[in-house]
């Protein structure tokens, strides 16, 4: 078991004619993911390395039985592709695209409410259930099948956490990058709820960063509902106020969203917070060892 994706997940690539989309569609296929189709308006009837391309999500879904899409569509048009996937009731939508205008995401987020779709991202590395299904741009080889979940707003920092876990022999159930934008489809709390219900996940690493209140809300959820050990890290302890640190969402504004506030909330919820990013894996190991003793 795992959350959201497994060996049976059938994936469409939206924007499959772009160079980045092709590079990663190939890598996902090589990892073993069922990449069953592509969607590019006007390119229907052509194919990419044996993967058929369709004009619309509707046609592609009907022809391939896909139940997930990954979106690499350029920022100005990406939200339209997400809206198309929601309209066609695609169960899982993963949006890798970076730099989507935030007002586009405002519309998407409202359209998602009450829909049959879950959106991961945008501006995220995607999702992987090691050994079964990789839908995203993460390097597959650093992962190892196992029982620790990982959820993170950051891409490369997730790789860092996964790498440390794998080096220590700790495998992962599913790793989700939820994205670094201010408005995203799936929050830390929603991801934690999925891990809570997954019998194949024993513990979770949650990686947050400055800005917003997503981590505080997740801390509150963990305190009251989460049944498994959690290790957390918050990036941006040294970040100045009022400056956007790369991610559009990583900004301390109006005195809120500081690392100190988030760490205090996490610790108050009984979460083991690693103060150094070099200690993500070892903190999880300690927590797991302590539990089995």
């Amino acid at each position: 078991m795992s959350i959201l994706v497994n060996k049976d997940t059938r994936v469409l690539t939206q924007g499959i004619t772009g160079a980045t989309a092709q590079l990663h569609t190939r890598a996902c296929k090589e990892y073993g993911t069922q990449m069953v189709g592509g969607v590019v308006p006007g390119k229907g009837g052509t194919s990419f390395e044996g993967i058929p391309i369709f004009n619309t999500v509707a046609e592609a879904k009907r022809a391939t039985g896909a139940n997930a899409v990954i979106n690499y569509v350029p920022p100005a048009f990406s939200s339209d592709a997400v809206i198309e996937a929601i309209a066609e009731e695609m169960p899982l939508i993963i949006c890798i695209t970076e730099n989507i205008p935030v007002l586009d995401m405002v519309k998407v987020k409202h359209y998602l409410k009450g829909s049959k779709s879950r959106l991961i991202g945008p501006n995220c590395p995607g999702i992987i259930t090691p050994g079964e299904c990789k839908i995203g741009i993460m390097p597959g080889y650093i992962h190892k099948p196992g029982r620790v979940g990982v959820v993170s707003r950051s891409g490369t920092l997730t790789y860092e956490a996964v790498y440390q876990l794998t080096q220590l022999g700790i495998g992962q159930s599913t790793c989700i990058g939820i994205g670094g934008d201010p408005i995203i489809g799936t929050s830390h709390t929603e991801a934690m709820a999925l891990f809570n219900d997954d019998p194949a996940t024993d513990a979770v690493i949650m990686i947050g960063e400055i800005g917003g209140t997503d981590e505080e809300e997740a801390a509150d959820y963990v305190k009251h509902h989460f049944k498994k050990p959690v290790v957390a890290f918050i990036a941006g302890q040294t970040a100045p106020k009022g400056r956007r640190m790369g991610h559009a969402g990583a900004i301390i504004s109006g005195g809120r969203g500081t690392a100190a506030d988030k760490i205090a909330a996490l610790e108050a919820a009984g979460i083991a917070v690693a103060m150094s990013p070099a200690d993500l894996g070892s903190t999880m190991k300690r927590v797991l060892d302590g539990k089995s003793n």
Partner: peptide, 29 residues
């Protein structure tokens, strides 16, 4: 650094080891 989260985390660890970062710099993917 590559990636915003890792870039912030790198600034943080520099500080933990007693120095101060001169900048945040994400060279991207």
């Amino acid at each position: 650094v590559n990636g915003a989260g890792l870039a912030m985390a790198t600034m943080d660890i520099v500080k933990i080891y007693g120095a101060e970062p001169a900048n945040f710099l994400d060279v991207g993917g």
